[in-house]
Design a protein around this nucleic acid. Structure first.
Length: 279
DNA sequence: CGGCATCCCTGGGAGC
DNA sequence: TGCTCCCAGGGATGCC
């Protein structure tokens, strides 16, 4: 599932459940996901309070009053669910936070991380180490950040001979974009996925930067894209799947010109595009 | 730098 | 219905 819009959806849903609330207990189902889980994870979380949640690229950063940050990456198949009553855990539920009630109101809440393929991961590290964290250092600009612009995108792609599709997936150049939204943003901007990244300048850079922002914002509005695994933490599906213009649409008519959507493989990932509308 | 293969895993869907 | 094969939203690593 999880590209920037899905991760943002998860973060927004977790805010009322986690912020300013105390961890009552922690369930850790296994010693590793993609990487080994942090040492003493449960002990370091229990009785701590989440102060605020942020997002960087495809990571959720959950800041604690202990001065540590819980980092969550959902990989390809990870999802988060929220419950108001203690749930029965299934085979792929690897991690659960039991949150104490807010003072004077309500019940406990439960946050469960499910990840069948276990490509996701969890880390816990000092807040002061965020900027130097190996998974965050060197990450490109946030496409929904205040500083993002066509000029910034053009600078990131300057001199690159790789296809623009690959450049969009490179988290060091721009953060948070995965295969779905790379394809959709290229379609919206009328740019071929095969075009060399270094040729995205001027008007093309304007169009692509605008398309990236438009696509990501629309997807967040719709609660993300549900294909196989993604559901919002409350269990709702993400409706952006109904708006996909080209992703997964090989052989179907282009929504703009009705010629057939093509699919090619670039760096091992499927690209979908209209060879008439995208140049 | 870039392209590409490989690996980490399970499960859904297509096709026979 | 049941089996096999292929593919999947990510990304680290290593080789050429």
């Amino acid at each position: 599932m999880p590209e920037l819009p899905e991760v943002e959806t998860v973060k927004q849903a977790l805010i009322p459940v986690l912020e300013n609330r105390r961890v009552f207990s922690v369930f850790v189902g296994r010693k590793n996901l993609r990487w080994p889980l942090p040492e003493n994870l449960a002990k370091r979380l229990t009785n701590k309070v989440f102060t605020h949640l942020t997002r960087r690229g495809k990571y959720v950063l959950m800041h604690l009053d202990s001065g540590e940050v819980l980092l969550l990456h959902l990989g390809m198949s990870g999802s988060v669910r929220i419950y108001q009553h203690k749930p029965e855990l299934g085979q792929h539920d690897h991690f659960m936070l039991e949150m104490a009630p807010q003072i004077g109101s309500g019940s406990r809440s439960y946050m469960v991380l499910n990840d069948p393929r276990r490509f996701g991961w969890i880390d816990l590290f000092a807040e002061s180490a965020i900027l130097g964290h190996k998974l965050l250092v060197g990450m490109g600009p946030e496409p929904l950040g205040n500083k993002f612009s066509a000029a910034l995108l053009e600078a990131a792609f300057k001199g690159r001979s790789a296809p623009v599709k690959n450049a969009l997936l490179n988290q060091a150049l721009i953060a948070g974009i995965g295969n779905i939204y790379a394809n959709e943003a290229l379609f919206l901007s009328g740019i071929s996925p095969r075009r060399k990244a270094g040729t995205i300048t001027g008007g093309r850079a304007d169009r692509l930067a605008t398309a990236i922002v438009t696509t990501l914002r629309a997807a967040i509005e719709d609660g993300g894209t549900s294909l196989r695994d993604h559901v919002q933490p409350g269990g709702e599906i993400g409706y952006f799947v109904q708006r996909l213009a080209v992703y997964g649409q090989a052989g179907k008519p282009c929504p703009k010109c009705s010629s057939l959507i093509k699919t090619i493989v670039q760096s091992g990932r499927s690209s979908f595009y209209c060879s008439r509308c995208q140049r």
